[in-house]
Amino acid sequence: MEPSEHDIVISGISGRFPNSDSIEEFWFNLVNGNELYTADDRRWPVGHIGTPPFSGKIKELSKIDAQFFKMCEKEAQYLDPSHRILYEVVYEAIYDAGIQALN
Rank of each mutant, 00 (worst) to 15 (best):
K74H: 14
D7E: 11
F26E: 00
P53N: 15
D80K: 11
L61K: 13
F54Y: 14
S62N: 12
T51A: 05
S20W: 01
D41N: 10
L86K: 06
F68I: 03
G50L: 08
Q77M: 04
T51E: 07
I49G: 08
F17G: 01
L30H: 09
K74D: 08
T38S: 13
R84P: 00
F68M: 06
R43M: 12
I99V: 10
I58E: 01
P81C: 01
E73F: 04
L36K: 12
Y78E: 05
D80T: 09
F69I: 10
W27Q: 12
G56H: 03
N32H: 14
E5H: 15
R84N: 03
G56S: 03
R42K: 14
Y78D: 04
V9Y: 09
W44G: 02
E60F: 04
A66L: 00
W44V: 14
I64E: 00
I23R: 00
F28H: 14
N103L: 08
I85N: 01
K74F: 11
A76M: 05
A39Y: 06
L102I: 11
Q67M: 04
A101N: 13
S4G: 15
L79P: 04
E24F: 03
G50N: 10
G98A: 09
H48K: 13
W27R: 15
V31I: 15
D7M: 02
K63N: 13
I58T: 01
N32L: 05
D40K: 10
G98D: 03
N32R: 14
G50A: 07
S14Q: 05
I23N: 12
I58M: 12
D96S: 13
D96E: 08
L102S: 11
K59Q: 12
E24N: 11
N29P: 01
P53M: 03
D41W: 09
R16N: 05
H6L: 10
G12N: 09
T51Q: 10
D7W: 06
E88S: 06
P18D: 02
I85T: 05
A97K: 04
G15Y: 01
A93W: 02
V9P: 00
V89D: 00
G98H: 07
E35K: 15
L61D: 08
R16A: 04
K57T: 14
Q67D: 13
D65V: 07
G56W: 01
T38R: 15
Q100A: 08
I58Y: 01
Y78A: 07
N19F: 00
P53T: 10
I23H: 05
W27P: 01
E5F: 14
N19V: 01
E88F: 01
E25K: 15
A39M: 07
A101T: 07
E73Q: 07
N34R: 15
H83W: 06
R43K: 14
G47R: 03
L102M: 15
E35F: 08
K63F: 09
V46E: 08
E92V: 02
H6Y: 14
P45T: 10
I49L: 12
N103T: 10
Q100R: 14
I64P: 00
G47S: 05
A97F: 07
